[in-house]
Write a protein that binds this DNA or RNA. Structure first.
Lengths: 193, 193
DNA sequence: CCGGAATTAAAACGTATGTTTTATACATTC
DNA sequence: GAATGTATAAAACATACGTTTTAATTCCGG
């Protein structure tokens, strides 16, 4: 039996103070529950991204929004979701980070499908804000951006690893600003050779 | 029983065509084997990084190497390791990507310890190549760089996900160049506010 | 050779997992 | 208020796991 998830049905039902059979009764299978949970988490995130993109596009008018504004629309929902709530932060951050890599084939494809839908919508905005950048180049730079986003969210969850002096910088707005600055510069870099 | 790893002792021994008990006999425990494997993979990678850093520093002389050269010393070993070999590419790439997040607490700490040793050594070179950048800012931008590196390696392992037109761009040298360009720009971005 | 040490073989152990089953309580409707 | 559909409870099932144990087998220096 492979570790489809690192948490057992018994853990979940015990934490929820329901019966062991409840998950199989209501969702049929553990994977189906997981898929439902992910949909419930990811969908609002991506809806929010598209809302923010709409907002900045409307505000910018015909000339299109600045790169930083588009980036913020993409990044802010994830960062804020990572930092809000009383607890469960770390759990969700790690989950988000991991689900892009391998938690479970079904889940991975589900998350990736949702994400790619959003990316397609953002592509046009990015290309407009980055005149002259080829789509192929954008493809890779988007990968780098998501890497920076998810990896920083992942490691922020474990503040114990950080040197004490740096803990204070660990707030949503600060991380967001740093991410936007870094990735905006990376996206705008001129292509060599 | 939690999924300490996604691969069982039975899988490993069967693939190696040795007896089931061989791992426990030779390594004592499954975790000990995993730690050994990781050391065997990570150590040469980081040795190579330090060698390359030495080389570019020696070549640059007193003025210190350019940012791109330092970045390449950090990134090249990982990218090349990701692309070489006949098979096992994907496995190792995913492994590397995941081990930074959560495969197993022991392994994670082992990998992170090795990595942080390298980072400390690189910090000086980066700070020299980035005059005016505060160490705190560098700390975060290094995180972003590692995120971009590992996430792109991770997703490159699954070429099936890529649109057909982009597969040709998928070689070590190309990815390396893109990564260096992107992260160099991000690291050099001016700090706002 | 051969005898002790190192390795392998094969089975068993104990535990944890997802799921199913059987029976009971609860609610809602007619 | 009985009947029916829904949720819970508790136990059982089948399987997979890491590890241990007990024999057999191989290796190798004397």
């Amino acid at each position: 039996m492979r570790g489809i998830e690192a948490v057992s049905i018994r853990d979940i039902t015990k934490a929820a103070r329901v019966n062991l059979a409840a998950i199989n009764y209501h969702f049929g299978t553990k994977s189906a529950l997981a898929a439902e949970v992910f949909k419930h988490c990811i969908e609002p995130l991506n809806v929010r991204r598209l809302e923010l993109l709409d907002a900045v596009e409307k505000k910018a008018g015909d000339k299109g929004p600045r790169l930083e504004a588009v980036l913020e629309a993409m990044i802010r929902p994830a960062v804020e979701r990572g930092f809000d709530q009383e607890q469960g932060e770390e759990t969700f951050l790690r989950l988000m980070g991991r689900c892009l890599s391998e938690p479970n084939v079904e889940i991975e494809q589900l998350v990736r499908a949702h994400l790619e839908k959003v990316i397609r919508r953002f592509d046009a905005a990015f290309l407009r804000a980055l005149p002259g950048l080829e789509p192929e180049e954008l493809f890779w730079r988007m990968k780098f951006m998501f890497g920076a986003l998810h990896f920083s969210l992942l490691t922020c969850g474990k503040q114990a690893n950080l040197p004490p002096k740096l803990r204070k910088t660990l707030d949503a707005e600060g991380l967001l600003q740093r991410l936007v600055t870094f990735t905006a510069a990376g996206l705008q870099a001129s292509v060599l050779s």
